[in-house]
Amino acid sequence: MTKRTLLIDTILQMAGWAEATRKLLAGDASNRRYDRLRKTDGDTAILMDAPPERGEDVRPFLHVATHLADCGLSAPAIYHADSDQGLLLIEDLGDDLFARLMAADPAQELPLYRAAADVLVKLHSAPLPELPLCDAEWLTDMTAPAFDFYAPEGGRQAKDAFGQAFHPLATALDDAPTVVILRDYHAENLLWLPQREGAARVGLLDFQDALLGHPAYDLVSILQDARRDVPRAVEAQIIDYYLGQTEQEDAPFRRAYALLGAQRNLRILGIFARLCLRDGKPHYVDLIPRVWQHLQHNLRHPALAAVADSLAGVLPPPTPEFLEHLKSQCARIPTPS
């Protein structure tokens, strides 16, 4: 029995869950893992195991969860927390992930995406907590993995050329009102809770990396999903719906949406390549063609012409041959110490 296993057992004993059965629920691209605990009376909870020695920190999760609850949204309730050890016992919001419900019944797609937009409308109207800022510097810097892992042959010159084209456009967004952006806001991180009311019917997961940024960011995140196809018609309807519920100006919002979509999908290309090349997780490579299509779609916006030019000839198209080459290099790049 490892030291961490003993620590978890002690915490579960303190929290009154020592006799519960445990079943691995999920891991993700980070070093966190989640176990479902079940008591004999049927009560359940989720154990989040986020080891600090592996770079995890649960304090941002606790901070954002408190803010979301204060907004009347459905973040998991916190039953027990040991921030120093990276262990949380939190509410179990169930298994009805948006992605699963949509796959089982495509007719639910539009209503569920509209419900997700309702969450953003409510969140964007709330007072702001203290969070780091997603500004032009952050947006530009966060594209680095694309040039370091997906297209490393372009080197520093390609990264600089992109930055020179992208940064002035991103700087223009810094003057827009900021909102909380959850960043990983997509169909595999949202749960349907029909017994609740209004925007609280959407259960929220994986929001510990939240920042303050532009209102279009999370709409891009959910409508240009790396993991599932969202029909362009649905994307257009939800953008129209969100704009109809807010005071955003149409043309500037759509311009920001395209710019943030290009940034986000460019970054994801690099992250997915890094997860394969450095971290030994080749299955993320299979998602790259969808991300590529999102990137190309955004780059066609007229306001992004200079950005598109800066990337021309730099990013290898995700042909079967290129993707197989990435997989063949899986875990060849050492993890930094």
Rank of each mutant, 00 (worst) to 15 (best):
L139H: 07
V121L: 05
E130I: 06
Y150L: 00
M102F: 01
E109G: 06
P127V: 09
L93F: 09
A146R: 02
A116P: 04
P132L: 08
A104S: 14
A115N: 02
A117T: 08
D118Y: 03
A144H: 05
T143I: 11
D118M: 01
Y150A: 01
M142Y: 13
E130L: 06
V119D: 01
L133R: 09
P132I: 11
P127G: 05
P106Y: 14
E109S: 14
R114S: 11
P106M: 13
A116G: 15
H124E: 10
Y150Q: 09
A99F: 12
E109T: 14
T140D: 13
A104M: 03
F147Q: 03
E130G: 09
E109R: 15
W138Q: 06
A146T: 02
P127T: 12
A107Q: 14
H124T: 04
A144G: 02
A126K: 10
P106K: 14
A144N: 07
D96W: 06
R114K: 14
Q108L: 15
C134Y: 13
T140N: 13
P111G: 08
Q108D: 09
V119S: 05
D141E: 11
A104Y: 06
D92K: 03
E109A: 14
L131P: 07
M102C: 15
A136G: 09
H124D: 03
F98K: 06
L139V: 07
Y113Q: 07
A99E: 06
A117C: 14
C134K: 01
P111D: 08
A117K: 12
A151P: 09
P129C: 05
E109K: 06
A146S: 10
V119P: 05
W138L: 15
P129N: 11
E109P: 00
L131E: 04
P111I: 07
A117I: 02
V121K: 07
L128R: 10
C134Q: 11
S125Y: 00
Y150H: 08
A144P: 01
L93E: 11
A116Y: 04
G94T: 05
F147E: 03
K122P: 00
L101K: 13
Y113L: 11
A115D: 04
L112K: 15
A116K: 11
L97N: 02
A126H: 12
T143H: 04
Q108A: 09
A146E: 00
P106C: 14
D95N: 15
A104L: 08
P132F: 04
L120C: 12
D118V: 05
V121I: 07
V119R: 04
P145R: 03
A144C: 03
Y113R: 05
F149Y: 12
L112W: 03
L120M: 10
L128Y: 02
P127C: 00
D118S: 01
P106W: 13
P132W: 03
Y150F: 08
V121S: 06
P111Y: 04
H124N: 13
A116R: 04
A103N: 11
F147C: 07
A144I: 01
L128D: 03
D148E: 14
P145E: 01
M102R: 12
P152I: 02
